[in-house]
Design a protein around this nucleic acid. Structure first.
Lengths: 232, 232
DNA sequence: ACCACGCAGTGACTTAAGTCACATCAGTTG
DNA sequence: CAACTGATGTGACTTAAGTCACTGCGTGGT
C-alpha cells in the first residue's frame, strides 16, 4: 500500500530526491483519492489546502467561460504533481482539474510541501524548475492564442504532441491520435467544427496525413513553417 | 553608488530578506544597465545568463507575432525582478523585454540567484511565491484571451488597473489613464481601433466615464458583472 | 445483430474582430 | 505660435471564426 505511494512520489521531479525514510514520511502523510474518467478533482476558485501527485492516469487543468466553452491550460499524466501554485502563494486553485481517464492521486498538504522546500534546498530548486517550466508553457500558450490563427495553433499542437509521443523516421513523424476533435478544440482555443475543418485543410495541403487514428507528418519542417508563417 | 544598488535589491521580494552584508555582496556582483524609453533589454529566444532587477522605471514583457502584432505578457515596475524563469529552467528568455520609460536595471547571474536559493531556503520560498503569482496571472490571461470578448477583456484590464492604481470613493473608482489605446490593445490582445470602439461602447453604456485623462468607474460591480457575464 | 450514443463532416449563415483609409485633435518642440 | 508627431475617432469593408442544423459513421453494449 504505502510502498506504491512511495514509488509514485519518487518518480516525480518534485519529490524525486528525497531519501527513502523521507519518502515514507511523506507517503504516510498523504491521502489517496481515486477518480473516474470525467470526475472533477477540484474547481477553479476552490480553497486550496495542498497539491496533488498523479500516481496513475492523467488529468486536464482548464477554465470554462460564461458560455460553457472550455480552455485547457495544461494536461499532465503520471508521474507528475499538479496545483503547485496555491501551495506557494496561498491562493485558491487557479483552474479546474478533471480526470481524463480513471486516475489516482495523492493529496499532500501545502505545509508539508513548504517545509520540504525549506528543509531541502534542492527540492526548493526542483519546485522552482517545475514552476518555471509551467510558466514558460503558459506564456507560449498566450502567444499562440493571441497571435496565431486556429490552423497554426492546431499545427503547433500536432507537432508538439507528435514530437512528444510519436516516432520519427527521416523527415516524417507519426503518432496515433487519441484526442477527439472536441478535446483538440479545447486545447487550441476553438470549437469542434473549426478544428474539423482546419484538420481537413492541413490534409488537403499535404501537411499531414490521417488514416484511421494514425496521424503522420510527412515533412516536419514544412508544418513548422506553416505554424510560424505570416498567413495572408 | 553601491548603496542605491543595495537599496534597490532590498526592496524586491526576492532579495528582501537578505542581510546587509549579503546584499552588499550581491550588489557588488551585479551589473547596472540603463535603458532609454523603448529600448530593448533582451529578445525572446536570447541566451539567458541571469535575471534583472528593476531599480527604477518600468518595462513590458511581450511577444510579437509574424504579422508584427504585439501581445504583452506582463508589465513590471521598480522594485521588481524579471526573467526569473530561465534562471531555474536553464532555457532562453521566454519573452522580449522593452523599457516603457527610461529605466535602470541590475543584472544578476543565474548562478548567484540559484546559490542564494540554495543557501537561504526562505529566499527559495520567496522565489517560488513570485513564480506562483506570475503563473496565476498568466493562466488568467489565457482564460481571458480565449474565453472573453474584447469588451470584457478591456473591462477586466480597467478594473485591474484601477484597483491597483486608482482611488476609491464609495461605489466608484477613479484613476488617470497613462496608457495609449495602442498599449491597451497590446495588453488585451487586440488592435487600436477595436479598443477605441470598445471604450466608446463602455462609455455609452455608462459603465465608465472618461474626461481628459481621467477614467472613472461609477459602479464597480456593474463593470465587473459586464466583464464576467455571458454576452449574447 | 441491432440499437444507441458519441464522434466526425459539412453546408449555410451570423458575427466579432481586424483592416484600411482618412479626418481630427493634442502636445511638444524648435 | 506654427509645424510636426503621435494619438484618437470613425466609416466602410473583409474575413476568420463561431453557430446551427443535420447527416453519416463506428463502436460498444445488451
Amino acid at each position: 500500500m504505502a510502498t506504491d505511494k512511495i514509488a509514485a512520489l519518487r518518480q516525480t521531479s518534485l519529490f524525486g530526491e528525497l531519501t527513502d525514510v523521507e519518502l515514507k514520511a511523506m507517503a504516510d502523510r498523504s491521502v489517496e483519492r481515486r477518480l473516474k474518467r470525467g470526475e472533477i478533482l477540484f474547481l477553479a476558485g476552490d480553497e486550496a489546502k495542498g497539491l496533488y501527485v498523479i500516481v496513475e492516469g492523467s488529468i486536464r487543468a482548464s477554465r470554462v467561460g460564461p458560455d460553457g466553452r472550455e480552455q485547457i491550460i495544461h494536461t499532465d499524466r503520471a508521474p507528475a504533481t499538479i496545483a503547485e501554485v496555491p501551495v506557494f502563494d496561498d491562493g485558491k486553485y487557479p483552474s479546474t482539474v478533471t480526470a481524463e481517464e480513471n486516475t489516482t492521486v495523492l493529496f499532500v498538504s501545502k505545509q508539508d510541501v513548504r517545509r520540504l522546500c525549506f528543509d531541502h534546498p534542492s527540492i526548493g530548486l526542483a519546485a522552482l524548475k517545475v514552476l518555471a517550466g509551467r510558466l514558460r508553457k503558459c506564456a507560449e500558450l498566450v502567444e499562440t492564442l493571441s497571435l496565431r490563427e486556429v490552423g497554426q495553433r492546431l499545427a503547433r499542437l500536432l507537432l508538439d504532441e507528435a514530437t512528444r509521443n510519436g516516432t520519427r523516421s527521416g523527415k516524417s513523424l507519426s503518432m496515433t491520435i487519441l484526442l477527439t476533435n472536441q478535446q483538440i478544440a479545447a486545447r487550441v482555443g476553438s470549437v469542434r467544427e473549426v478544428v474539423s475543418r482546419a484538420l481537413a485543410r492541413l490534409q488537403q495541403d499535404g501537411l499531414i496525413v490521417i488514416e484511421k487514428h494514425q496521424l503522420s507528418i510527412p515533412d516536419v519542417s514544412a508544418l513548422t513553417d506553416y505554424a510560424e508563417a505570416d498567413r495572408d
